[in-house]
Amino acid sequence: MSSRDKILAALKKNQPALVELPVLNFAGNASIDLKEQFTKTLTGIGGLVIEVNNWKDIVKHIQSKFPKPDRIVNRVAHLNFESDGLAYSSEISNKPDQQAGQKSDPHDFSNVTVAIMKGEFGVAENGAIWLTDKDMGDQALPYICEHLVLIINKNSIVPTLHEAYEKIGSSTYHLGTFLAGPSKTADIEQSLVLGAHGSKSLIVFLIN
């Protein structure tokens, strides 16, 4: 008998009588200012939230935050660093319309200073942003870059994770993630340090 069959047989024999699943009836308070709660929560866990009116503003913000990045990888076609007449260049990596899960060598991104990509939506209660491999291009990019920039629609923010999973529904992906703030650790005497292994900072732009 294989281990699989042994384990399954033991479970069948030992599991108690069926207990029904509960009916989940949770909903966040949609009447509060979701944008404000999202901003407050994400700021509280080390992120920076900036509301902008247009794509050009995002370019300007990035340039002032990162005057001389070694390498900037931009996954958002709307952002155009060159055409705005600014002395700044970025590479558009893995065009956003490319198929997800495409093969690239993730090690090639080890020297990326800034990575810019879109997120699907935000969650007000915990400051998290949902994104999938389709947004990332290379799945290593949001983790290996030194600084991460995410752009979400300001009207996409949902109150809690309950609404978030409703939104995700039964969609499929290779990798989906809730990302909330820069990478961090408090393993040394509970002192909070930003930039453990992933990005050292996270900037989220809210746009219409």
Partner: peptide, 19 residues
């Protein structure tokens, strides 16, 4: 666990990436 609203990364692994 720590009083955080969520961990920084909550990764959902559904399929291996190509290769």
């Amino acid at each position: 666990a720590t009083g955080q609203p969520i961990t920084t990364y909550s990764s959902h692994f559904q399929k291996p990436r190509e290769g």
